[in-house]
């Protein structure tokens, strides 16, 4: 790696981990990290270096409500934290854009670094391998965008158009293999974004799946369950 760029990334990583960056710069450097493995490595090295300093902080007992809230948030119908949704969502969909934004961000932060970082975009010029599904309604309007990285097990959902869902019902996402029974993947929200953890990696579950569908169910479907009528369907494609 270019020495000047390595030095610059080391300095930015130090400021990021140490905590002196402003919100604006932190968010830009987060984008840079998503696009650049070298930036992540620099941050990792500083985390390893500085974290032992945190051990002198006296422990404090959080309230019992904290665990209950966590439990609720990781539950089947939970809405995950904004940060995790945001990350999980952006990673597969905006790899190239991040490469470009990260480069521009780095240049804006440190204009003198323009020359050394010319190869930044080259380092991450393609979208990461992912499975992407776009589900449409009867009028063929796009409603649900589902994506997950090839070897990951987190499915990110973005609802493009709010779904009218009767109270007490859930929207169940199904994988439809060409030569087998549909199997449930997880529950999607009626609007907004969410993520859920699948029972295995996308590669294991979806490598032979070319169609996805959503049905309205009384409760989240377990293994072996049969779907009600589909309200949304769409193709599932490999992004690599």
């Amino acid at each position: 790696m270019n020495y000047d760029r390595a030095k610059l990334l080391d300095r930015l990583a130090a400021e990021y981990v140490f905590g002196t960056m402003s919100a604006r710069v932190r968010s830009r450097f987060n984008a840079i990290q998503r696009a650049l493995p070298a930036a992540r490595e620099a941050v990792h090295a500083w985390e390893q270096r500085l974290t032992p300093l945190a051990r002198s902080i006296p422990p404090e007992k959080p309230s019992a409500a904290a665990w209950k809230a966590i439990e609720r948030k990781i539950g089947g119908n939970a809405s995950p934290s904004f940060a995790s949704t945001w990350l999980a969502w952006l990673k597969p969909m905006l790899g190239v854009a991040f490469g470009v934004v990260a480069t521009l961000g780095l240049i804006r932060l440190y204009p003198t670094a323009i020359m050394p970082i010319d190869d930044i975009v080259q380092e991450r010029g393609t979208l990461p391998a992912s499975y992407v599904g776009l589900l449409t309604d009867e009028a063929n309007k796009p409603v649900v965008l589902a994506s997950s990285t090839r070897h990951g097990s987190i499915m990110s959902i973005k609802i493009l158009r709010k779904v009218e869902l009767p109270t007490g019902k859930v929207l169940q996402l199904w994988a439809l293999p060409p030569d087998g029974e549909p199997f449930p993947l997880g529950v999607v929200p009626a609007e907004g974004k969410s993520t859920f953890r699948m029972t295995d990696t996308s590669e294991k579950l979806l490598s032979k799946v070319s169609r996805l569908a959503v049905s309205i169910e009384d409760a989240p479907a377990g293994a072996g369950a049969k779907p009600a009528a589909y309200v949304l369907t769409g193709n599932c494609v490999k992004l690599w």
């Binding site: 404090e60 809230a69 934290s81 995790s84």
Partner: peptide, 14 residues
């Protein structure tokens, strides 16, 4: 701080 802790653990779970 409890909100931070909650988000961090949900993040760790994911």
């Amino acid at each position: 701080a409890e909100e931070v802790l909650q988000d961090a653990f949900v993040n760790a779970w994911n």
